[in-house]
Design a protein around this nucleic acid. Sequence first.
RNA 1: AGGCCAAUAGCUCAACUGGCAGAGCACUCGUCUCCAAAAUGAGAGGUUGUGGGUUCGAUUCCUACUUGGCCUGCCA
Length: 328
Amino acid sequence: MAKKGRVFSGARPTGKQHLGNYLGAINNYVSMQNEYDCIYCIVDVHALTTVETTQDLKQNTLDMTLDWLAAGIRPEDSIVFVQSHVPQVMELHTYLSMVAQFGKLTDLPTFKEKVRQQPENVNYGLLGYPVLMTADIVLYKTDIVPVGIDQAPHIEFAREIVRSFNYRYGTKVLVEPQVKHTEVLKVLGIDGKDKMGKSLNNHIELATTPEETVKRVREMVTDPARQRKTDPGNPDICNVFTMHKIFSPQEEVDMINTECRKAGIGCVDCKLRFAANLNKNLEPFRAKRAELAANPNYIQDVLHDGGKRARTIAEQTMVEVREAMQLP
RNA sequence: AGGCCAAUAGCUCAACUGGCAGAGCACUCGUCUCCAAAAUGAGAGGUUGUGGGUUCGAUUCCUACUUGGCCUGCCA
């Protein structure tokens, strides 16, 4: 089947993935494989801008890759690799940094945010983050980048860099990436307040046990106005109901929607039903993950192979780039 | 480049003249709730930025360094 173009996306190695990662990115990664040639990169170099030690990088990379593959990313179709395994990206980053405007970099919202978050570690790499990101994207002549709304300024910046580079060197060697806005549903954590995230410890891990899943679901915050089982609830503001809509069968969702409002079903019952459905949904994922994890070298081999394929494309691009720049 | 101030629990900060390092929030475990939240009780949490030095004894004093903030200078 002819694919519609090349997709590239990167994610920082955050270790074991959770529901938010799955609904926000991974399932989209999986489904895009049917329409596009996909390259999925674990951006360990980007992680260095905010991480103080590298002791967890390796394990986090393996855990995340394992989750990706178990969720349905097919390494025989897509390229799955680690950013630092392709040194060409550092070279391209340096060349691109000469056309990246300082003022633009300091104006980008994510940079300002990081400066606010970690004023004790505002490093050069943090400023150049979007330039490295651009290098990642264009190194593989990416046609399409799937992004959530918060990353949109970065892609626009990447397009500007590509135009500047091509104009300066009178070439068309770099491809301007197109943005594909993905419908990222904002997944709230079990606190029902903030976006689900590992650092906030309000997440539900994909690869955990069914028992732990039930425990975490029970901890979920519900409609605070519903004090007693006999009080009517409001599913519209209950995060458990939001999750039901994603993981439960339609008739069960409809039932809860009506019964909760007239106090016909309690929160415990509602949560146990959700946990059961979630566990059922995750069962194939967990089985596959266990199967893949049984062979300790498998993930390493996948990443090794992905790196090899990525380097082939990358070096081809770099030959053209150096030629276009008329480097002696 | 110089000067001044700061660095203590995950976070915000205390600790008198050098004498057992403590509180609030967050976290964990109870009570109460159909669960959760709220409320309430308890618990855990530390190489006091790093390396030296003075002292019987250093979070405290001295010194060097690291990081951050403020002021001044220099260059253009």
